[in-house]
Amino acid sequence: MTPEQITLVQESFRNVFPIRDVAAKLFYDRLFETDPSTRPLFTSTDLTEQGRKLMATIGFVVTGLTRPETILPAAQSLARRHVGYGVTEAQYGTVGAALLWTLGQGLGEAFTPEVESAWAAAYTLLSNVMIEAARTPGAA
């Protein structure tokens, strides 16, 4: 990611954070609509609490984009836990699409092509690290 992309992600997330509960609900609704195979992963999960965790995790990642060494080990650990939950590689794509859609809904006109591209770059970086970690033998 370029420094400009990092700045765009960080600045735009400041506008999402105040509506984080609504954004989390939009995200999970969209995810389950576009990829019903993800719904069973959350059957015994309080989605309100899960949404808070999601937004906290996104905030952690966004803050750490300037210091990847602080976020990549956590992302790798999270990916290994996700293997145990039954998350598949294909689901990373639908999660990314749901995230970008949610950001578009939450940011409205502020979700410019440049902001969208920056978020796509951030998600691609993170998801590639997570997929690679999930492929590691003994990842579960």
Score class of each variant (00 low, 15 high):
A121W: 02
W101I: 08
P68T: 01
Y123D: 10
L26A: 09
T38I: 01
A79M: 06
N15V: 06
T57I: 02
K25I: 14
G51L: 11
G96L: 02
E114N: 09
I19T: 12
A133N: 05
E69R: 04
N15D: 13
V83G: 14
G51A: 07
T7N: 09
G138T: 05
T7A: 14
A140F: 04
Y85F: 14
F111S: 09
L126D: 07
D35Y: 04
S127I: 11
A24V: 12
S44K: 11
T88A: 12
E49S: 15
T57V: 06
A122E: 08
T45M: 08
V16Y: 02
L99C: 04
F13K: 01
A122D: 10
T45L: 12
L107Y: 01
E116K: 13
I6G: 02
R135D: 12
T88P: 06
P137L: 05
Q10H: 06
A133H: 04
K53Q: 14
F13C: 00
A122Y: 14
V83H: 08
T43G: 12
D46P: 11
A97V: 09
D46V: 03
R67H: 15
L126V: 13
I6F: 07
Q5E: 13
P113G: 03
T102D: 03
E49P: 04
F111P: 08
I71H: 02
D35L: 00
T45K: 05
V9G: 05
W101E: 13
A97R: 11
A139H: 04
Y123T: 05
R81D: 14
G93L: 12
Q91I: 00
A98P: 03
A56L: 07
Q105D: 05
V129Y: 13
A120P: 10
R30S: 08
D29W: 12
F32G: 00
R30W: 08
A75N: 07
Y28C: 01
D21F: 11
G104R: 05
M1T: 12
S44G: 11
R67Q: 15
R30Q: 13
A133V: 04
T124F: 03
A134F: 07
A118T: 03
G86D: 06
V61C: 09
P68C: 03
K53L: 14
A121N: 11
R30F: 03
L103A: 03
K25C: 09
A79Q: 10
G138N: 10
R67N: 15
